Amino acid sequence: MKTIITGISGFVGQNLSKYLIAHGNVVEGLSLRKNDWKLKTSADVIIHLAGKAHDTSNSADPQSYFTVNRDLTIKLFQQFLTSEIKDFIYFSSVKAVADTVEVLLDENVHPNPLTPYGKSKLEAEEFLLKQTLPAGKRLFIIRPCMIHGPGNKGNLNLLYQVVNKGIPWPLGSFSNERSFLSIDNLNFLILKMLTSKDISSGIYNFADDDKLSTNDLIEIIAKVSGNKSKIWKINSGLISGFARAGDFLKLPLNSERLKKLTESYVVSNTKIKMALGIDQLPVSAQEGLIKTIKSFKN
């Protein structure tokens, strides 16, 4: 099977391409950076990973999200429709649906994104879903939650640095539950989708089976790094006020980053597992996080 991947140089693209090749697939990258790019028709699948990631500092031009995440997706899909390629896999985001989750996020929740990033992803989804698919073609919209794995930087690495240096975690008073997605489970699900001819077009959430709190995560990091966890339960109102000050003073802790670190965001993966006939993903949430954290240590 031949697969074309946009955004192949990114974290997900590098890992997914290596995984697919290791399982006997031919993989080719497609860069969308130049205006004269063109989709080759000699392939079985196009996986569209390229996009503008969410900027937690809120310094990016809002229009740039729509130019990249929506407009490039539209152009790519239009070329797919007239090609011989059978499957189009678009990596959207759970943030195309909700910035906060009260109980559980599944595919039936009515989308209401609040950020330019989420809105641009949703507008791309809406365009794709309105198009008529020619016979024999399939469209998959993937909504992953927070993806992590060895080599991936971000909030997990930030937490590791805090715990590894023996700095107390000051946000222990925030009670939450979060879903994560290890790169291993993402790769597994994509390969299963590519090799399953019975799965129907549609929207599918990607998440690990288990949910964990940030305090649980601190405990895991401490165990892996060989340190004793130090969790301080400082008044949450005081911390929130400090974060709001960070919005104006450009401090490391601002409202957006505090939200990412402490919010509850539980994502259901029931639909994709039922579609593929899977009872359990190969890597537990805890196993995946331990693998990622060990990579920071090394």
Rank of each mutant, 00 (worst) to 15 (best):
H148E: 07
T115N: 10
L129K: 13
A96M: 01
Y90T: 09
R138S: 08
H148M: 07
R138H: 11
K75I: 09
D87E: 15
G136F: 06
G118F: 00
R138F: 08
P144Y: 01
D106E: 06
R143S: 04
N112Q: 15
G151I: 00
L76P: 14
S120H: 00
R138W: 07
E84Y: 09
E126F: 11
L104W: 00
K119Y: 07
T132K: 13
K165D: 10
K95T: 10
L104F: 05
R143H: 06
M146S: 10
L128R: 06
K165V: 05
N157T: 14
G166V: 05
E84I: 00
A135R: 11
G151F: 09
C145E: 02
F77P: 14
I167S: 11
L133E: 12
G118H: 03
G118M: 01
K121R: 05
S92D: 07
G151T: 05
Y117K: 04
L159A: 08
M146F: 10
L114R: 12
W169P: 13
I89W: 01
S83Q: 03
Q79G: 14
D87I: 12
V163C: 07
I141T: 02
N108V: 13
K75L: 11
E123K: 07
L72W: 01
N155M: 01
K75H: 11
G149Q: 03
G149E: 02
L158Q: 13
G154S: 03
A96K: 02
Y117R: 03
L129E: 12
Q131E: 15
V97I: 12
I85P: 06
G151Y: 06
V103N: 13
C145M: 04
E102A: 15
A98D: 06
L156G: 06
M146N: 07
T100P: 11
P144E: 01
R138L: 05
W169N: 08
V101N: 02
V94W: 00
N157C: 15
I89C: 08
T100A: 12
K119R: 13
V94R: 00
Y90Q: 11
E84T: 13
P134W: 02
G151H: 01
I74C: 11
E102L: 12
I142Q: 00
I167A: 11
L139R: 03
P134V: 08
Q161C: 12
D106I: 05
E102V: 13
E84F: 10
P113Q: 05
S120W: 04
Y90D: 08
K119H: 10
R70V: 01
L129M: 13
V97W: 04
T82G: 14
V163Q: 01
Q79C: 15
W169I: 08
Y90N: 10
I89F: 07
Q79S: 15
D99L: 04
G154R: 01
H110A: 15
E102M: 09
Q78T: 14
I167Y: 04
F88E: 01
K130T: 14
L81C: 15
L129N: 09
L158G: 12
Y160F: 15
E126Q: 15
F91E: 02
